[in-house]
Computed example of a mutant assay.
Amino acid sequence: MLTGKQKRFLRASAHHLDPIFQVGKAGVNDNMIKQISEALEARELLKVSVLQNCDEDKHTVAEALADATNADIVQIIGNIIILYKESKEKKKIVLP
């Protein structure tokens, strides 16, 4: 679980990032979870965009992705979800 100070730091770090995944009409599926998990291992911090045609609520999508990848939800702002998971091998981000 992340503290408020850590979330603030991660939000600032994620500000310049672009969303690299989009959740659309199909919602969250196993292939997407696998790809996001691999991306989290490589990057530690990423943004996911929830498209307008997604049938599920953005909070439901965020919880599903976080649970499936064992990641932490840093922030949900608009239709953007910011996820963080500490990398086992390629650790780049040092939390305060």
Rank of each mutant, 00 (worst) to 15 (best):
N79E: 11
K85M: 15
D18P: 01
Y84G: 14
A12T: 05
A64D: 11
A12I: 11
A71N: 01
H15Q: 10
N79T: 06
A12R: 09
E63S: 05
A26G: 06
S49T: 00
I93P: 03
N79A: 11
N79K: 12
A14F: 06
H16F: 14
T3N: 11
K90G: 06
L95T: 01
L10D: 04
P19L: 09
E38I: 07
D18R: 02
A26E: 11
L40C: 01
P19G: 07
S87T: 14
K7R: 14
K25W: 14
C54L: 13
K34D: 07
C54H: 00
P96R: 04
I82K: 07
H16Q: 10
S87W: 07
E44A: 04
K5I: 07
E86F: 14
R43F: 08
L95D: 05
G24M: 12
Q35S: 07
F9K: 02
I36A: 00
S49K: 10
K85A: 13
A12W: 07
A39F: 01
L83A: 09
R43I: 11
S49E: 14
N29Y: 08
L46F: 02
V28L: 04
I82M: 12
V94A: 10
V94G: 02
I73V: 15
I93F: 05
K47N: 03
E56P: 06
D57E: 14
I80Q: 08
H15F: 15
V48C: 05
L46T: 02
M32Y: 00
E63W: 04
Q6S: 10
S87F: 10
A26F: 08
H16S: 14
K91Y: 04
Q52K: 12
K7M: 14
I93E: 03
D67K: 04
D55V: 15
K90S: 14
R8L: 09
D72M: 13
D30I: 00
S87G: 13
N31T: 09
L95I: 09
L95A: 05
A68Y: 01
A26R: 01
A68F: 08
H16I: 14
G78Y: 08
I80A: 05
K7D: 10
D18M: 06
L83S: 08
E44R: 00
V50A: 09
V61R: 01
N31D: 11
S87Q: 10
E44H: 00
A62Q: 04
V48F: 02
K25R: 11
I80W: 03
A62M: 13
T3E: 14
K25S: 09
Q75T: 05
K85D: 11
D18G: 01
L45I: 05
I73W: 09
V50H: 02
K58V: 11
L95E: 04
A68R: 00
Q75P: 01
L65P: 10
Q52P: 14
Q22G: 12
G27F: 13
I20N: 08
P96E: 06
F9Q: 09
H15L: 15
V94S: 12
R11L: 15
L51S: 03
M1T: 09
N31K: 01
L95P: 05
K85P: 13
D30L: 07
Q6G: 05
C54Q: 01
K25P: 06
L17S: 03
R11D: 15
N70Y: 13
R43C: 07
R43W: 04
N70E: 15
N29S: 06
K34G: 06
K85S: 15
Q22F: 11
